[in-house]
Every structure is written in C-alpha cells, then in structure tokens.
Simulated assay, not measured.
Amino acid sequence: MRELLEQVLGVLAHEPVALARIVDRTGAGPRETGAAMAVTADGRVIGSLSGGCVESSIVDTAGVVLRDGVASIERFAAADELAVGLPCGGEIEVFVERLDRTALPLLHALSTALRAGQAVAYATTLESAPDRALLYADRVEPRRGLGRDAGPPRGEAAVAREPAPDRQLVYLGRIAPWRALDKDVAALLGTGRNGLIGGQDGTPAVTARPRTFVQVFRSPARLILAGANDYTRALTVAAGRLGYHVTVVDARETFTTPARFPAADAVVVDWPHRYLDTEFRAGRIDDRTVVCVLTHDPKFDVPALVTAVRLPVAFVGALGSRRAHDDRTRRLREAGLTDAETARIRSPLGLDLGAHTPDETAISILAQILADRAGATGHPLDTLDGPIHRP
C-alpha cells in the first residue's frame, strides 16, 4: 500500500477509488499481505495484487463496490480450468472497499507518518461499511479543536484520538470498535507485522471486536542469536513465526552458514559483542530488540553479555545450566558488570516446561520472551483469576 498511497491521495481529491488489499494468505502466493491495488471509476488500475492472476476479477468487483459503496471480500485459491485462481497453489483473501474524500484526513496522516519514518499501524474492519484507524508507536499531539466528543471539521470526516498504553490511537468515526481492539493492534505494531484480529466466531465479542486487518508500517522487531548450534536453528524457525527478524551471529565460520540456518533472515560471521556494538552504532538496535546468547563458551558469551546489557534492548538471555550460570555470573562481575547489570540477564534462559530437545527449548525460551514483553506471569491460566487477555 505504501507505494501507491500518494497516487491514491491524488485521485481521492477529485473522485472516489476502490482499494483492494490482500488481508490474508495461506501457502505460496505472489505477494504478501498488505499488497494493494486501486481502481478508479473509469477503470484505471494503480498497483498490483498478484502479477495478473486475479486482477481482472478484482477490477470487476471494484466497479460494483464503487457503484454501491458496499465493501466486498473475495477469496482465491489454486487455479483450475473453470475458475480464476492462483497458479502458485496458495490462497489469498482480498478486501475491496470504497474510499472517498472522507478518508483523506486519515490517509494524509498516514502519508505524513511514513514520510517522517514513524512507525504506524493502519487498521480496517472487514465489514460492509468499514471503520479505519491509525495507531502510532510514538505519541502524537492531539489535533487542536478535536477530541473524543468533537464534531467533524467542516468538509472532513471526524478524526479523534483515543489514548492507548504509551501510544496514541487515531481513528475515524465512532469510538467503537477501537476500545476493544487497540491492544491487539498495539501487539502487532510492537512486532512490526501485519495480521488479522477480532472476529472470533461463536463469542459475544464479535460485535464489539469485528474482524479487522492491521497493516503495520514498521520494521520487524529483531531477535539476535549469538551462537551457531542446534538450539539456535530451532529458535530461528519458531521466532520467525512470531514475526521476529532473526539474525544468527558467531565467529566460527565453519558452523555459521546460511545452509545451516535457512529460516534465519541473516547469518553473520563475526564476534557477537563486536556485531552488537556495530549494529547499535548504526541505529539498527532498539527497545524491541531481543538478544539471546547460546554459545556455552565464556570467550564468546561473556563479552557478548557485557555488551548486550549495556544496550537499550528489550530482553537479554543466556542459555545454560545453573552451574554454568553461576560460573558466568562470576566472570561477568570480573569483567566489570554491576549487580544491577547482571540482574538484567535472564539466565538460565527459558520457562520451566520440561523442555529437553532443541525444539522444545525454543518454545520454552520464546514463552519467556513473550511473557516478559507483556509483563505476564508465565503461570498456568487455570491458576490465575481475571480475564485471559489483560489490558
């Protein structure tokens, strides 16, 4: 959507457009979720969804949506001789909605955020008459004269701001459903990935929490794994499913190869502490970054941990037994770390799940990272009171 936003804004100043986006994808597909195509009233097409597989069908749907103003959902599976479909064999779900001048304030705000390099999520309820919202990663100043109860400015749709924890929610139209969905949007924004939220079938929450597509404009949160071993390989697979951009770094060239870690986004041959320092100085480490040291070798893990705990990262963990932890803690103090600094290190790393294999251990580690990120206990839900999904 980013690549066609300015063109859509130019058209919307004069006439409505139909915006089609891939909101869900299963299996192989030509493009990722969030890929967009716009269609004007005279049939002009901006952008692409699939490189030609389904565009003609979407153009027809867009004409109906433009005429009737009712949004539509189209689903495409593997192609056969009788139906339009995807030759790659996957499945996609495409949401087609009508945009007019009332969408301009929100889309201009999105354009401004993107030009400023600001992390932002664009949320759309997948309904016949969709609601739309922006959720920023950073606080923004309220627009003067507009608030929760303010009426729309002359010639524009209402743009109100509703606070979320440490963030600011900007939405069009009615306050609902964003009070019920903003925590879910914020969770996706935190990891930097698109997703579908709400719409759980068979629960009373469907009305208050409609099915919603959240398109996130932000780089994914990073997981940096120091050490090239079987536990690292298992973590690259599992963490990738959670939306992390995973880097494996180790100074041993023989073990640190892309072939050994095909699920990693990057495989780097370097000393971990030197790599961390270089990435921080380049501005590629932030307060969402997770660092896990899995080397089991003091000459690697001690310098890496000394560097990591002094960076503004979200989480630092170190794998090993309690005996290894005690020995490592002694070495870290000898290297100059204070008690407060060593306390930042989650070690032994992982929750008590009875994990033994690398795959089981990866789940144990990621469970602790998720609990730490959410400020959750990590206790069994049946031993706790109150709502499962807490504010």
Score class of each variant (00 low, 15 high):
Met1His: 08
Glu6Ser: 13
Val8Ser: 12
Leu9Tyr: 12
His14Val: 03
Glu15Trp: 12
Ala20Ile: 09
Arg31Leu: 02
Ala36Gln: 02
Met37Lys: 06
Met37Ala: 09
Met37Cys: 05
Gly43Ser: 06
Ser48Tyr: 09
Ser48Asp: 12
Val54Ile: 12
Ser57Trp: 03
Ser57Phe: 02
Asp60Pro: 00
Thr61Val: 14
Ala62Gln: 01
Ala62Leu: 07
Val64Ser: 15
Val65Ile: 12
Arg67Val: 00
Asp68Cys: 11
Val70Gly: 04
Arg75Gln: 12
Ala77Trp: 00
Leu82Ser: 06
Ala83Leu: 09
Val96Gln: 07
Arg101Gln: 13
Pro105Asn: 11
Leu106Val: 06
Leu106Met: 12
Ala109Gln: 11
Ala113Ile: 08
Gly117Asp: 10
Ala119Asp: 15
Ala119Pro: 06
Ala121Phe: 04
Ala123Lys: 04
Leu126Ser: 12
Leu126Arg: 11
Ser128Arg: 14
Asp131Tyr: 01
Ala133Asp: 04
Leu134Asp: 07
Ala137Phe: 13
Pro142Asp: 08
Pro142Ile: 05
Arg144Tyr: 09
Gly145Lys: 11
Arg148Ser: 06
Pro163His: 06
Pro163Asp: 06
Val170Gly: 05
Ala176Val: 10
Trp178Phe: 09
Trp178Gln: 05
Arg179Val: 14
Arg179Pro: 01
Asp182Asn: 08
Val185Lys: 04
Ala186Arg: 04
Ala187Lys: 04
Gly192Met: 10
Gly192Tyr: 12
Leu196Arg: 05
Gly199Gln: 05
Pro204Cys: 05
Arg209Thr: 01
Arg211Ser: 03
Phe213Ile: 14
Ala221Tyr: 03
Ala226Lys: 02
Thr232Tyr: 00
Ala234Gln: 11
Gly240Cys: 06
His245Met: 10
Asp250Met: 11
Ala259Thr: 15
Arg260Glu: 14
Ala266Tyr: 04
Val268Met: 00
Asp270Tyr: 03
His273Ile: 00
His273Asp: 13
Arg274Val: 13
Asp277Glu: 15
Thr278His: 09
Arg288Met: 05
Thr289Tyr: 13
Thr289Glu: 12
Val290Gln: 08
Val302Cys: 04
Leu311Ser: 01
Val313Pro: 01
Phe315Pro: 09
Leu319Arg: 06
Arg328Glu: 00
Leu332Asp: 09
Ala335Asn: 08
Thr342Pro: 00
Ala362His: 03
Ala374Gly: 00
Gly375Leu: 02
Thr377Leu: 10
His379Ala: 13
Leu384Cys: 04
Pro387Arg: 14
